[in-house]
Simulated scan of single mutants.
Amino acid sequence: MAQTCRSGLHDRHDVYAAQCPCRDVLDLLANKWSALAVGALEEGPRRFGALQRRLEGVSPKVLTQTLRRLEENGFVDRTIYPAVPLHVEYALTDLGRGVAGPLGLLRSWVEEHLDEIHAARADAGRPPEA
């Protein structure tokens, strides 16, 4: 049975409520590998190897886990084509395409403001990569 977290004002889920299942989805989508995988799949369906090359630095294990979670939550479709060896392709669902825009805006914002973020870290006495 799914937990509810409806607020009375607009009868909507409340991500600020401690037991709201929205938090699981937020955790998934706020993960860097999820945000990057969704972005890579915006360019069209991809095989696992192509995704791994596009998401520089991701391990096969982490990419597999990320794609499984995105698939389980309805953001990604996994299609297996019978061939030798098997041909597996990942693509965004309608839900995945719907979240791609906001995640794309977040990725762009980070790229545009990275110098300011590094400057703020330096002012705070922290290294840029911390």
Rank of each mutant, 00 (worst) to 15 (best):
3 Q>V: 05
3 Q>E: 05
4 T>H: 10
5 C>V: 01
5 C>T: 02
7 S>Q: 13
7 S>A: 08
7 S>M: 07
8 G>Y: 12
8 G>A: 06
11 D>L: 08
11 D>E: 10
11 D>S: 08
14 D>K: 14
17 A>F: 13
17 A>V: 05
17 A>P: 08
18 A>Y: 13
19 Q>P: 04
20 C>M: 07
20 C>D: 05
29 L>A: 03
30 A>E: 12
31 N>P: 06
32 K>N: 05
33 W>G: 00
33 W>C: 02
34 S>G: 03
34 S>Y: 12
36 L>R: 15
36 L>E: 10
37 A>H: 02
40 A>K: 05
42 E>I: 08
45 P>S: 08
46 R>S: 07
47 R>Y: 08
47 R>L: 01
47 R>P: 03
47 R>V: 01
48 F>R: 15
48 F>I: 00
49 G>L: 09
50 A>I: 07
51 L>H: 06
54 R>N: 02
57 G>F: 01
59 S>Q: 13
61 K>S: 03
61 K>P: 01
61 K>V: 04
62 V>W: 15
63 L>E: 07
64 T>F: 14
64 T>E: 12
65 Q>D: 07
65 Q>Y: 13
67 L>I: 02
67 L>V: 01
68 R>T: 08
68 R>I: 06
70 L>N: 02
70 L>P: 00
70 L>I: 03
71 E>W: 15
72 E>T: 12
74 G>D: 07
74 G>S: 08
74 G>T: 07
75 F>N: 01
75 F>E: 00
76 V>P: 05
76 V>F: 10
76 V>S: 04
77 D>C: 08
78 R>Y: 13
78 R>V: 09
79 T>R: 14
80 I>E: 10
81 Y>T: 10
82 P>Q: 11
85 P>E: 00
85 P>Y: 12
86 L>R: 14
87 H>T: 03
87 H>C: 01
87 H>F: 09
88 V>C: 07
89 E>D: 04
91 A>K: 04
92 L>E: 00
94 D>G: 03
94 D>R: 14
95 L>I: 07
95 L>K: 15
96 G>H: 00
96 G>P: 01
96 G>V: 04
97 R>I: 02
98 G>N: 10
98 G>Q: 13
98 G>E: 12
99 V>Q: 01
100 A>D: 00
101 G>D: 06
102 P>S: 05
106 L>I: 09
106 L>Q: 11
106 L>W: 14
107 R>N: 06
107 R>L: 04
108 S>C: 06
108 S>M: 09
110 V>S: 11
110 V>Q: 14
110 V>A: 12
110 V>K: 15
111 E>R: 00
112 E>Y: 15
112 E>A: 13
113 H>P: 04
114 L>K: 14
115 D>H: 07
116 E>C: 01
117 I>G: 04
118 H>M: 06
118 H>Q: 09
119 A>T: 02
120 A>V: 03
122 A>R: 14
123 D>T: 10
124 A>H: 14
125 G>M: 10
125 G>C: 11
126 R>G: 04
127 P>Q: 13
127 P>N: 11
127 P>V: 10
128 P>G: 00
130 A>I: 12
130 A>G: 07
